[in-house]
């Protein structure tokens, strides 16, 4: 085999290699860089910005069923319902009101229905001095004990707000006490946390802790 023939075979082989590489590059150039595992979209429940509870005022505004507030459908007018206690002097919640959890205040301190409900007129509430308060005006009632919280709420520093910070452009929508707190058990319940951040190439929560502290 002459020297020329060897050269020609080499060049021929190189041509084939180049053409092959060229074709490979063209085919693969459209592919996106690999980002590892597909990250699922976050559940829409974590994007929900509505209030966790609806108050009497909300129901009135939305024109919805108020039968839960129709006390004299069952109770008799002018006859305050008696409160019964068990052996430990704890209130026995009647089965008609089994949805009520008695959990207002630690050490069971605020444990009497008529601390807030008006026994003379069940359609209203009352503060401790006997002052009547409507179901649609609960901040006044709650504030009669929780003064600093009422003060903060009125200033906008307590509670949830949405809408406009700039009142010349629109109104701020302030939520009321019972939109977040259950009046019978006001402590905010715990909840599920939304997913942790995913790292670029792995499942949730695999970013090394030291990265967060630079």
């Amino acid at each position: 085999m002459s020297k020329n023939t060897v050269t020609q075979y080499w060049l021929g082989a190189l041509t084939v290699v180049f053409l092959g590489l060229g074709g490979f590059f063209i085919v693969t150039s459209a592919a996106h860089p690999a980002t590892g595992k597909k990250i699922p979209l976050v559940d829409v429940k974590f994007l929900d910005r509505t209030a966790s509870r609806r108050t009497y005022a909300d129901l009135v505004k939305a024109g919805e069923d108020l039968s839960d507030y129709d006390c004299y459908g069952c109770h008799e007018k002018g006859k305050p319902p008696p409160i019964r206690y068990d052996a430990d002097h704890k209130i026995i919640v009647p089965k008609e009101h089994s949805d009520v959890v008695m959990g207002h205040g630690s050490h069971d301190r605020n444990n009497l229905c008529y601390n807030c409900h008006n026994e003379q007129n069940l359609l209203t509430l009352q503060v401790r001095d006997g002052h009547e308060v409507g179901f649609d005006n609960i901040p006044q009632l709650c504030g009669s004990c929780h003064g600093p919280n009422l003060r903060d709420w009125e200033a906008g520093a307590h509670g949830r707000t949405s809408g406009y910070w700039n009142h010349s452009l629109g109104a701020a929508d302030r939520l009321s006490c019972a939109n977040c707190h259950n009046p019978h058990a006001p402590r905010i319940p715990t909840r599920e946390s939304a997913p942790a951040p995913h790292s670029l190439h792995g499942p949730a929560g695999t970013t090394t802790p030291h990265e967060s502290t630079h």
Partner: peptide
């Protein structure tokens, strides 16, 4: 800049986030 609250504030379920104009003495 259109006068509304930020999205993180509106979604906060416990009202921990507060935002406003510090030059306005009446703001939260």
């Amino acid at each position: 800049r259109a006068g509304k609250y930020p999205a993180c504030l509106e979604v906060c379920p416990v009202g921990a986030r507060k935002f406003g104009n510090i030059l306005d003495p009446e703001s939260e």
